[in-house]
């Protein structure tokens, strides 16, 4: 099983040279720490920045420079600042190629639920609905099962959804899977020490296993 860092490290391997990427709050934010330094990528922050840099030193802290998680950040050389309308124009217009975000549930058709738990606190969807409706490629970072052991990879979502048929790839603590265009989770890789059988038992939606499934490489 992977911990949060493990999931972030594995997702970082999906990043290719020249990509413009939006990272969601939580595990996706950690991905930035593991993107190989020889790759030239630009991280977009939906509150109005292209070119998120590392977290600042004490002396660099600027209250006028935060990411979408309201954390203090710095800017890379070549950054650009803009309004929220411009930011979502580049998201909606399909210019931000990859979105990496967390999920509470994903369905075998690629529906994602990650913004609301009825009866509990509703914090709002922020930019998630815009991002999943428009990014060309969407990778989800998530736990395969709830704390109680219930699968979060389902036939259909039980929670209110954030977007329909949009998730392309999932990196969970147990596996890497693709969502097939016709529906179903295609198992691509197992997390270290996790068997295909365990993944089968932890996946409530249709799981497609084609031949021997290799263990993840880092």
């Amino acid at each position: 099983m992977l911990d949060k860092t493990g999931i972030a490290k594995r997702i970082a391997r999906e990043v290719k040279d020249g990509m413009y990427i939006n990272l969601g709050i939580g595990i996706p934010t950690l991905v930035a720490n593991y993107i190989p330094s020889h790759l030239n990528v630009v991280l977009q922050s939906e509150n109005g920045l292209l070119g998120i840099g590392p977290f600042p030193t004490e002396n660099e802290v600027d209250p006028d420079l935060i990411n979408a998680g309201k954390q203090t950040i710095t800017m890379m050389a070549g950054s650009a600042l803009f309004s929220s309308a411009e930011s979502f124009a580049m998201i909606r217009g399909g210019h931000v190629y990859l979105t990496i975000l967390g999920a509470m549930e994903v369905s075998e058709l690629g529906d994602i639920a990650n913004w609301k738990v009825p009866g509990k606190m509703v914090k709002g969807m922020g930019g998630a609905m815009d991002l999943v409706a428009s990014a060309k490629h969407i990778i989800v970072a998530m736990q395969h099962c709830s704390k109680e052991g219930a699968s979060k990879l389902l036939k259909s979502c039980t929670l209110p959804i954030t977007g329909v048929r949009c998730v392309k790839r999932i990196v969970s603590d147990m596996a890497v899977l693709d969502v097939l265009p016709e529906g179903g989770f295609k198992l691509l890789e197992r997390a270290p020490g996790v068997s295909t059988e365990q993944i089968k038992n932890a996946t409530a939606g249709r799981l497609v296993i084609d031949g021997e499934i290799a263990e993840m490489q880092f």
């Binding site: 939906e46 309004s83 929220s84 309308a85 930011s87 979502f88 124009a89 998201i91 909606r92 969807m125 922020g126 930019g127 998630a128 609905m129 815009d130 409706a133 428009s134």
Partner: peptide, 22 residues
């Protein structure tokens, strides 16, 4: 949704009564 909020406000200032978004 945040992008819809931003664009609805932009539309308000730009005299566009409605628009389509995914």
């Amino acid at each position: 949704p945040q992008g819809t909020l931003a664009e609805r406000i932009r539309a308000g200032g730009a005299g566009i009564p409605a628009f389509f978004t995914p």
